[in-house]
């Protein structure tokens, strides 16, 4: 899976309340969730977001609540993948389970800036900054996680698995 997109750059410790405010947790429709990403603190995000854009963040992206809406909303808003120095544990799982590609890449914040265009090979973890020409290597995802992502998330993955077991 090769993705190309413009970068939205965020700092360290971006928490789930900032990504998806608690007041919208009663919403269960992914398209509706997508209308509220980052709305409290970064109201410009949704106005300027284009389908396929990529988030590059500092350490501990997605810390806080277990709300998976914080991953779902970004996927349905059109974010192609998220690359961060590190992720909070539950967010990492939630993104994978939603089929939203996610890569850990220590040092990425220093190599990519807001508005750069990058190309990401999800399977190998190789990233190319098309604006500067620099190549960056992210940690490779384990095989079975790649399997979940390529199936489109945990639900289709488990469905397939259950079918095999029958």
């Amino acid at each position: 899976m090769i993705l190309k997109g413009k970068v939205w750059k965020f700092g360290d410790d971006i928490n789930t309340d900032v990504i998806y405010p608690g007041k919208h947790l009663a919403i269960f429709e992914p398209e509706e969730m997508a209308k509220h990403c980052f709305e409290t603190i970064y109201p410009d995000f949704l106005k300027k977001l284009k389908k396929g854009d990529i988030i590059v963040a500092g350490k501990y992206f997605g810390c806080g609540s277990s709300r998976e809406q914080a991953a779902t909303c970004l996927k349905y808003a059109g974010i192609g993948c998220i690359i961060a120095e590190s992720f909070a544990r539950i967010y990492y799982r939630n993104a994978i389970n939603q089929g939203l590609p996610i890569l850990v890449c220590p040092g990425i914040s220093k190599k990519i800036e807001q508005g750069h265009t990058i190309e990401v090979d999800i399977a190998s973890g190789s990233i190319k900054n098309l604006t500067t020409g620099e190549k960056i290597q992210a940690s490779r995802l384990p095989e079975f996680i790649l399997g979940i992502i390529s199936d489109g998330g945990l639900i289709p993955y488990v469905k397939k698995k259950l079918k095999r077991n029958v």
């Binding site: 277990s66 991953a71 389970n97």
Partner: peptide, 10 residues
């Protein structure tokens, strides 16, 4: 431990 809604469904 805390998990997400999709994995809870599984």
């Amino acid at each position: 431990t805390g998990i997400g809604a999709t994995e809870m469904a599984c």
